[in-house]
Design a binder for these strands. Sequence first.
DNA 1: AGGATTATTTGCGAAATGGTACAAAAAGGA
DNA 2: TCCTTTTTGTACCATTTCGCAAATAATCCT
Lengths: 214, 214
Amino acid sequence: MVQKGAKETEPKRRGRPRGYDPQAALARAAEVFWKAGYAGTSLDDLSAATGMNRPSLYAAFGDKRDLYLKTLEHYRDESRVLARAALADDPPLRVLLKRFYDKALELYLADGPRGCYSIGTAATVAAVDDGVRAFLADSMRTTDSFLTHQIEKARARGELARDADPAALGYLATATLHTLAIRARAGLPRKELNALVNAAIDVICGKQGRRGGA
Amino acid sequence: MVQKGAKETEPKRRGRPRGYDPQAALARAAEVFWKAGYAGTSLDDLSAATGMNRPSLYAAFGDKRDLYLKTLEHYRDESRVLARAALADDPPLRVLLKRFYDKALELYLADGPRGCYSIGTAATVAAVDDGVRAFLADSMRTTDSFLTHQIEKARARGELARDADPAALGYLATATLHTLAIRARAGLPRKELNALVNAAIDVICGKQGRRGGA
DNA sequence: AGGATTATTTGCGAAATGGTACAAAAAGGA
DNA sequence: TCCTTTTTGTACCATTTCGCAAATAATCCT
């Protein structure tokens, strides 16, 4: 029988070979959607970005909406990899959050001030498309849970005040990510975004409102 | 000479009278842009919403982008009225913030889960339109300043710890507004949004991380 | 009454958009 | 070699989109 997961034993597919890599095509498509949003991106734009003609895009990914949803999932999966990387050596909360936000900012500023793909584009579509709305809602709840869980761990390890409320701080940690996403897209300078990151970390980690030096 | 500002002495305008009120038309236009975003809203949609034919829309407001920018300004002006109303009787910071966020949520949920007009639609356009980006950046800085200023006042009045940092807390207060805007648009239930408001207020006003009831 | 001014209406045009049918290309298998 | 399968390419379609020209309507002014 066919061995799944072993690339070198994959049987030769009949028919003409694909001229594209699905993951690479999704990443290319996301790049153009990231700039102009869903409605502002045409099939010609997507075709040019992926190097695939329109019938090929349809055959590979379905219609425009299907493709967009797949790019959102692709972005979510890539973002999770980044989040997990921040946990690699089980760092203190302050270090974890700094890494997390810095990684996010790298992503949000990688190709000019594009901000977060999900918030920058899916928020607009969410009001008129239930599938996109569900994706966005899920995405936010996942972020809440991730950050709240890290804050709980930190409190249990004595890094936070005993009466710190992880749910409340988790909300604020997610709110920080969201505001960074929008501010990055609005072109605010990296220096301001860094200041915001440091401020948020100080508040969340218990140096509330202290005037902290870098 | 003509008396400006006195409506009853305004001279009769020559020519055919207008069949629309500019402010009402802007509000109607904003309603449709609010749902589908800038690129997802057609001139036919705007025409139907405002009751004005397309040439009239062009004559009154300019092209589609001009109209959109005018609706953003209209929304900004209306929002400022709401913010000032929260200040009417110079309340303590906790009361002010509660009012501010509650008013925002009323606006964000007034016609189903539409969220904030500016963040829900302008963020997407910002990446490809410098005018919209500038509007969004300005808008966020104005909110920062407003909230930071209120926090400074509260600290001066002894409502906050003496070492509270208004700039840091101001950022978090704005971040809270932004996350509410996105969550509302993503259809998260009002109950969750209320919980987030209460959590943020507790952290900002100095009951950091306490597990608060109701 | 006629002219000037301003607003609305009708109809149109060029271009763009999302999607599809079908032929051709490129492979595996008998 | 021929058949089957999968993918790509070409051409096309119906509809939508944004913007505009010109005629008409509704007012004020002389």
